[in-house]
Design a protein around this nucleic acid. Structure first.
Lengths: 189, 189
DNA sequence: GACGCTTGCCTAAAGGCATTAGGCAACTCC
DNA sequence: GGAGTTGCCTAATGCCTTTAGGCAAGCGTC
């Protein structure tokens, strides 16, 4: 029997691709085994369980997303940074819907603390530097930005915006404008 | 063998309760059969499939949520209405996490069109009457409100706000304030 | 109250995914 | 080329879904 050369790394990457193709919840050990033309049991030498596999895909997605956001953010500030952050986020979700779904997986606290999720939190706060908010306003604003971006992207992905003729791209731009204005107002107060 | 008196109705209600207790994705025909102390196959006389069951739970949740939002909205306008809408939404999600998750289920277009989702859309637009926005601004605003509320509630549910000491209730109030201010500004323009 | 008829719930069976235990053969390194 | 490691396989168990066919509980009728 020829050896295919499975590794945890390759399984996780293939799992991420599979997620983008058929949806994160359709990522199963069986499907992955089929993709490598290998028996399911063979995977268990490389990942502890199906849950382990999904967690690893989530961590990969968080990492990739953080990298792309960091890239987009480099050298920008204020509204520019806000828009770059928002767009990087949305673009990733559209390009990699399965990975994006994976990134929402609930991680246990230790795993989360060691994940790129921490970088996300930092970068969101970094954007707000341009608006000069004190605490607790800054935390409120972080939560609001996270909510809007995540909410928009996930509603868009689930087809929630397809009932109206208005271009989602226009709404997105309008929302970013609005958030910028809102944050500037909050700075004043 | 005693007859338990299964009906589609009872199965859906029990499924919704089960969802709140153990999570929507743990709602399985098997678990439901156990709850009624009945064999799994017996359920198939009342629901077409596991998917059918989940869809019905989703429709129930949408209906309940729309009812509660409508209640909260009655007799209110402007910021009052905005806050009532937001709170009804969040309260429902907190009280019924499984049902709320069910309400996010992707429905096929016809089912969605016949669901209470339509009432949700209407009510969201109704709130905006207090802010006198034209099109396409109104659609943008509907999308933004939906995004913020859904995003906040779902991040809160997945534990995303537990890393900071700031009370989520305060952030929620801050966000509603901000949205009200934002919409008033948009009216001016 | 006995009779049949509907129909609710059951048994049986097949197929899919997850997981573990143990085996053999394919690489690796001397 | 031989010894040892290890990668992938077979086998088996358990849970979930779904369909087909059977029996009896409860209904209405006389």
């Amino acid at each position: 029997m020829a050896r295919v050369g499975l590794t945890t790394e390759r399984l996780v990457r293939a799992g991420a691709e599979l997620a983008d193709e058929v949806g994160f919840d359709q990522v199963t050990a069986s499907a992955l085994a089929r993709r490598f033309d290998v028996k399911v049991a063979s995977l268990y030498a490389h990942v502890k369980s199906s849950q382990d596999l999904k967690t690893r895909i989530a961590l990969l997605a968080l990492e990739e997303l953080a990298d792309q956001v960091a890239d987009a953010l480099a050298g920008r500030a204020g509204k520019d940074a806000l828009a770059a952050f928002a767009n990087a986020y949305r673009d990733y979700a559209r390009r990699h819907p399965g990975r994006y779904a994976a990134a929402q997986l609930r991680l246990d606290p230790e795993t989360a603390a060691a994940s790129a999720g921490v970088r996300h939190a930092h970068m969101t706060r970094a954007i707000l530097r341009g608006y000069d908010l004190g605490e607790p306003d800054q935390t409120h604003a972080v939560r609001m930005l996270g909510s809007v971006f995540h909410g928009y992207v996930s509603l868009e992905a689930s087809g929630g915006f397809s009932h109206t003729a208005v271009d989602p791209q226009d709404s997105w731009a309008w929302i970013i404008d609005s958030l910028d204005a809102l944050l500037q107002n909050r700075t004043a107060s």
